[in-house]
Simulated assay, not measured.
Amino acid sequence: MCTHTPHCPSASSPAAEAARVVASHPEQGWSLLCNGVLLFEDTGELLPDGRVIAPRRLTAV
């Protein structure tokens, strides 16, 4: 999906969240990255192949 240079990390890369935002809807709590990842404000992700990455919540110490 990424057409700019340098190319963004792929959706399967550990750095996938570093891709550019192509659509942002903060009122709905999500952004679409150019690698096809849907990034949610709770840090959860939906990958282009349909896999779900659970939110990464910090625990209180």
Score class of each variant (00 low, 15 high):
residue 56 R to P: 02
residue 51 R to Q: 12
residue 57 R to F: 14
residue 57 R to T: 06
residue 24 S to C: 09
residue 51 R to I: 01
residue 61 V to I: 14
residue 11 A to D: 13
residue 43 T to E: 11
residue 59 T to L: 14
residue 48 P to E: 05
residue 45 E to G: 02
residue 36 G to H: 03
residue 31 S to I: 04
residue 60 A to G: 14
residue 43 T to G: 01
residue 1 M to Y: 07
residue 16 A to C: 09
residue 60 A to Q: 13
residue 27 E to R: 13
residue 31 S to P: 03
residue 43 T to L: 09
residue 61 V to D: 15
residue 31 S to T: 11
residue 19 A to R: 00
residue 7 H to G: 10
residue 3 T to L: 12
residue 14 P to L: 04
residue 60 A to C: 09
residue 32 L to R: 13
residue 49 D to Q: 13
residue 50 G to S: 08
residue 32 L to C: 03
residue 42 D to H: 07
residue 35 N to T: 02
residue 17 E to F: 07
residue 22 V to I: 15
residue 33 L to S: 02
residue 6 P to E: 01
residue 31 S to V: 06
residue 39 L to V: 08
residue 32 L to I: 07
residue 28 Q to A: 15
residue 13 S to Y: 00
residue 52 V to P: 03
residue 27 E to G: 14
residue 9 P to K: 05
residue 35 N to W: 02
residue 12 S to R: 14
residue 11 A to S: 13
residue 56 R to M: 08
residue 12 S to D: 13
residue 14 P to R: 01
residue 9 P to D: 05
residue 52 V to Q: 12
residue 34 C to M: 09
residue 35 N to I: 02
residue 1 M to H: 09
residue 26 P to T: 01
residue 10 S to Y: 08
residue 54 A to K: 11
residue 49 D to K: 12
residue 36 G to Y: 03
residue 32 L to Y: 08
residue 15 A to L: 12
residue 3 T to Y: 08
residue 58 L to T: 10
residue 47 L to D: 07
residue 59 T to N: 14
residue 8 C to S: 10
residue 52 V to D: 11
residue 33 L to N: 01
residue 39 L to R: 06
residue 17 E to M: 13
residue 9 P to A: 04
residue 29 G to E: 09
residue 28 Q to W: 15
residue 61 V to C: 13
residue 24 S to G: 13
residue 13 S to D: 08
residue 52 V to Y: 13
residue 32 L to M: 10
residue 32 L to P: 01
residue 41 E to I: 15
residue 43 T to K: 13
residue 16 A to K: 10
residue 13 S to E: 00
residue 6 P to K: 02
residue 40 F to A: 10
residue 51 R to P: 05
residue 49 D to N: 15
residue 6 P to T: 05
residue 47 L to W: 13
residue 42 D to K: 06
residue 22 V to D: 09
residue 48 P to S: 06
residue 39 L to Y: 08
residue 34 C to H: 01
residue 33 L to H: 05
residue 25 H to M: 08
residue 51 R to L: 15
residue 6 P to Y: 05
residue 2 C to Y: 03
residue 42 D to T: 10
residue 5 T to S: 10
residue 2 C to G: 04
residue 35 N to K: 04
residue 33 L to D: 00
residue 13 S to F: 00
residue 56 R to K: 15
residue 56 R to F: 07
residue 1 M to P: 05
